[in-house]
Simulated assay, not measured.
Amino acid sequence: MIEKIDFSQSEQYTLSIRLSTDGFSFSIYNPLNGSDFFFHPYPVNTQRSMAANAKAFLAETEELKRPFKQVNILIHSERYTVLPFELYEDEQMESLVYQNLQKVNNETVLCNILGKSNTVILFGLDKLTHLFFSEHFPTARFFAAVSPQIEYFSVKSRLGNNRKLYANLHPESVDLFAFDRGHPLLFNTFSASGVTDQCYYLLYAWKQLGYDQERDELHLTGQTPFRKEITEQLQQYIRKVFIINPQAEFNDSESSRIENVPFDIQSLIACE
């Protein structure tokens, strides 16, 4: 846990909660003072449902019982789909989602409209979890965890005159973002654990997109113990492989100094 914040001033702060099957976490920061920052991970019981873990999380975490200026809730999941803004219609959200994803019961379909990439992310969250957080934080904004990353990388990908593939590596999955100078080509999250599987999927995506091994760029970030080994493996096939440095990316903000702050939270803070 990292603590550098005055909780008596919580009404001035932004709370960002991240929900994932491999654990919850939350950050609290002052948008007017980047040095005021608090981050705390919360382990989940993998034998319990998301809703049961969410209920316990809200009940047991004293910091969440304070008032906040703004509350963001990020859901890290593979259950999302992407479409161009021009094809989006509010009344067709569910039908659009279930054209690409298998329908499940008791799911709320939510939407993020992304202005920088001109795309819409439709994503699912089980109804009970959504209800718990909506009741606890009536003004909360819900995001797919990929949404702030897409907005952030959309801007970064416009630099230079080559195509870029960004990958956020997690212990059991990879978030993938492909751009051609700001133009989105592919966004996807897939299950993959270990060096061999993650390298395979990254190289397969690179090949399918027709990226150039000498000219185009692969940028890696994320919380996996295998990142160094994955980087070394990929450098055998791709010339320009880079590790994203949070200190450089986020102007040495307090959140970037904390190694275990998920990149999607960092990118959400940067995009605020």
Rank of each mutant, 00 (worst) to 15 (best):
P67T: 10
Q247T: 11
E60T: 07
E107M: 06
M1V: 15
R79W: 09
A205P: 02
N162Y: 13
Y237R: 03
E254F: 11
P246V: 01
N118T: 03
H183D: 12
H130V: 06
V44A: 07
L19Q: 09
E272L: 13
P171N: 04
S35W: 07
K4M: 04
G34L: 13
V174H: 07
A52S: 12
Q198N: 08
K4D: 01
F26S: 09
Y204I: 01
M1Q: 09
Q235H: 06
P31L: 09
L114N: 08
N53G: 03
I121T: 11
K103F: 00
N33K: 15
H183V: 14
V174P: 05
E259S: 14
A59C: 03
F123D: 02
K164E: 07
Q12V: 00
S267P: 06
L186P: 08
C199Q: 00
Y166G: 06
R257K: 15
Y166V: 02
Q266W: 08
N72Q: 09
A144Y: 04
Q213Y: 12
A248V: 10
S253T: 11
F187E: 05
S35G: 00
P171F: 05
A140E: 05
M50W: 11
L114H: 09
E254V: 04
L32D: 11
R158H: 04
T129Y: 00
Y237D: 05
I150R: 06
E86M: 12
G194W: 02
R158N: 04
A178H: 05
S16R: 02
R181C: 11
C111R: 09
C199T: 12
Q213E: 12
C111Y: 00
V82R: 08
L64Q: 01
Q208P: 00
Q102M: 09
S267T: 15
E232G: 03
I73L: 11
E229Q: 12
S16P: 07
A167D: 06
E60K: 13
T129L: 08
S77R: 01
E91M: 00
A178C: 11
S255V: 04
P43N: 02
W206A: 09
L203G: 03
N53S: 00
Q70G: 09
G23L: 05
V104H: 11
E78S: 14
R141M: 03
L74M: 10
T224S: 14
S154T: 14
A51S: 13
Q47R: 12
T231W: 02
S255C: 10
P67C: 03
C111S: 03
K156Q: 15
N106F: 01
G194A: 07
L19Y: 08
P67R: 03
A205Y: 13
C199N: 02
E259K: 13
S20Y: 00
A248H: 14
P184S: 05
I150D: 05
G222N: 03
E86K: 13
T129G: 01
R66L: 15
S191T: 12
G115F: 13
F85S: 14
F39Y: 15
D197W: 02
Q233C: 10
F142R: 08
Q9V: 00
G160K: 08
S25C: 15
Q99E: 14
